[in-house]
Design a protein around this nucleic acid. Structure first.
Lengths: 258, 258
DNA sequence: TCCCTTAATGGTCAGTACGACTATAAATAG
DNA sequence: CTATTTATAGTCGTACTGACCATTAAGGGA
């Protein structure tokens, strides 16, 4: 950082890319837009855009999130920086450094193209074809991060509406992790973690369909899980093919510690 | 990402900043350089520099790491992207977006100013005065991340020389976490985690000073800790002042989930 | 040399957490 | 009314952890 005035430097374009997830009907979905021009015309891509001169990357991300989802108030949504992608050739047109963000939406209103993006749509995360640019990797990295955070934070409630049942919360976990969980054990763990969820006092109950009605809960004040809620270790002998959008297992060229 | 050619955008300067840690004699130290010019002349700052037109941010970070430490080979060192700092006013001279990286050094050779930085030095992490720019926050964020990763990865061996004793490894944990750990329990946990460390076969023993000589170990092949090695929960009733360089408790403006 | 100190190593024991599982309750579909 | 479905409650054995105590193997000093 010494000597700005002495050294030449190349200015880069700086953008934000958004990996926006929601869970609908037990399916993990991502918000994607269809590209209309080259390069990658017709391919799906992550929503995003340039960082304006007077705003931070996070401000830009929140602005883009509001534009792409069409929601008037995104201030309560979970939005966190994922990481920055800066490979010199990641955009064939010019040098673009992109700060990627992960966002979670509880309910999933079909996005209306409020912003400049013509056709933003929710697509199921599994089976999303190859995306434009390096967006496959960004989306996979975001999914990995969300899955990891589910273990030691209360992040999962970010996928739930204001009031939810423990069954819904469990389904969020199962959807993101791609596993099944034992219902009584999951219940015991969640209720034993103080501050994770709190019961809705008015003995309210939700009648969704068949079966005994479930008690409703709200997200609690806690953000961390102590001890963590570890996902079941995958069978070590079975080299199961990775579920994900086609992309490779997201092996960063950086350190070996996820 | 639609319509590059239709929209105006402002180019930014893109830099990397390095939070480089080492543990020497039970003290966590950070690699810092002293600024010679305004702004923040005379203040300590993180090493860093511009990303060159043809390189990725990680390549730039590794190049800067080699320059600032004076080490000829930094390929084996732990280096991982931390996050990107992009507040519009973080540098008073111009708009600079900085991608921060965290690096760990096992041994700590006194850095020689091989690169352009005149006086790079190791300074103890605790009590480092206010740094230049937003580097206090970057360094605190890096420390938080390293501490968190110690819980569920084998990252701690990155602070150790190729062969080390379990006492040294424990001291690394205690130094980074700022806590004390029970020695037999730590030993039991580390040895029970397959792949964390492996004994040096030649019955080698290190005679450091008094006491029974300790067996030597090498870092194993594992990168993750299952189950994690959780740090002792801080006493919840005692609002102890945060240990760190002066900076505030690193409250990101983003999501509430660390 | 003998004893004390230091540090590594080995072990016990109880409380907690967790996985697997069974049982009961309360609703709907037929 | 009965079967099905889902929520909820509880049990039991194992694994893990924190708090200890004991032993071993070195060095230092009187």
């Amino acid at each position: 950082m010494e000597g700005y005035d002495k050294h030449a430097f190349e200015p880069f374009a700086v953008t934000v890319d958004l990996a926006v997830f929601t869970v609908r009907a037990g399916v993990l979905q991502a918000l994607l837009i269809e590209r209309g021009q080259e390069p990658y015309a017709g391919r799906w891509a992550l929503p995003g855009g340039f960082v304006l001169p007077a705003e931070s990357a996070e401000t830009a991300a929140r602005r883009e999130l509001a534009e792409e989802t069409g929601l008037s108030d995104v201030s309560g949504l979970y939005l966190e920086q994922l990481r920055t992608y800066s490979e010199p050739d990641r955009d064939p047109r010019m040098r673009v450094v992109s700060v990627a963000y992960t966002a979670l939406l509880p309910d999933a209103p079909e996005p209306r193209g409020g912003g400049d993006a013509a056709s933003a749509r929710w697509l199921p995360y599994d089976g999303v074809g190859p995306l434009a640019f390096d967006h496959d990797r960004i989306l996979a990295d975001a999914h990995d991060r969300v899955g990891a955070k589910f273990e030691y934070t209360c992040l999962a409630t970010g996928f739930c509406p204001p009031e939810f049942t423990l069954g819904e919360l469990q389904q969020v976990y199962e959807t993101v992790w791609g596993t099944t969980l034992d219902r009584p054990n999951f219940r015991r763990k969640v209720l034993a973690t103080s501050g994770f969820v709190e019961p809705v006092p008015g003995a309210a109950r939700l009648t969704g369909g068949r079966g005994k009605p479930a008690a409703l809960y709200r997200a609690g004040a806690a953000t961390a899980l102590h001890p963590p809620l570890l996902r079941p270790a995958p069978a070590p002998s079975q080299p199961s093919p990775s579920p994900s959008p086609s992309s490779a297992p997201s092996s960063s060229s950086e350190g070996r510690f996820s």
